[in-house]
């Protein structure tokens, strides 16, 4: 069994938003919506400032509260631990939206709940997700954590990294290399 994850190198990311546009194009995300977004975090006092740029999205959590709260099993774990929404099972109750500490989900204009899929349709063909494939600085790595020799496993072994609000207890699988 694979365990897909993503690592974003905050030392390389320049916040160009190419990943955001690539996702919107690849996945036909309706205008005015986004499945991923760029966050710039500045800490410190001038002149000692530190800036971290992150490309954020659904964390495809291992203990996903959206899957737990879904009353119809529309939100489910697919191959490789990717969290998906089955459109034909979703009733639009929005329990998953309120359960997500990352606010990664939204109601698609067609009524069902939508979010990042790790581009599972591309992953199945052996390709990287759209956002990863277009990143001009190669700041994003997608891969299988179960495979010890994968690029992502290597990166997490050799680099300092963090996840977002691990204290929310969801075991997120989007890592940020520091």
């Amino acid at each position: 069994m694979a365990r897909y994850a993503m690592a974003i190198d905050t030392k390389r990311c320049v916040g160009c938003t190419d990943c955001v546009v690539a996702c919107q194009t690849e996945n036909n995300v309706p205008v005015g919506y986004c499945r991923d977004w760029i966050v710039e975090e500045t800490t410190g006092t001038y002149p000692e400032l530190h800036m971290e740029i992150r490309s954020e999205r659904c964390n495809h959590c291992e203990d996903a509260p959206c899957v737990r709260s879904c009353p119809t099993s529309a939100s489910h774990y697919a191959d490789g631990g990717i969290v998906l929404v089955d459109h034909d099972e979703c009733i639009g109750c929005k329990a998953c939206i309120t359960s997500c500490p990352y606010d990664a989900r939204f109601v698609h204009p067609e009524g069902y709940v939508d979010k990042c899929t790790f581009c599972i349709h591309r992953v199945k063909e052996g390709k990287d997700p759209a956002c990863v494939s277009v990143c001009p600085t190669h700041a994003m790595i997608f891969g299988d954590l179960e495979d010890e020799n994968s690029e992502i496993s290597e990166a997490l072994k050799t680099r300092k990294h963090k996840t977002l609000i691990p204290e929310a207890g969801t075991v997120p699988h989007v890592y940020y290399l520091l």
Binding site: G15, T17, V20, G32, Y33, C34, W37, I38, V39, E40, E41, T42, T43, G44, T45, I53, K94, I97, D103, R105, F106, V107
Partner: peptide, 15 residues
């Protein structure tokens, strides 16, 4: 100081 900004914009309706 800690300043966070979503620079790509994110205005998902309802969220």
């Amino acid at each position: 100081m800690k300043e966070i900004e979503i620079t790509s914009g994110r205005m998902n309706p309802g969220i």
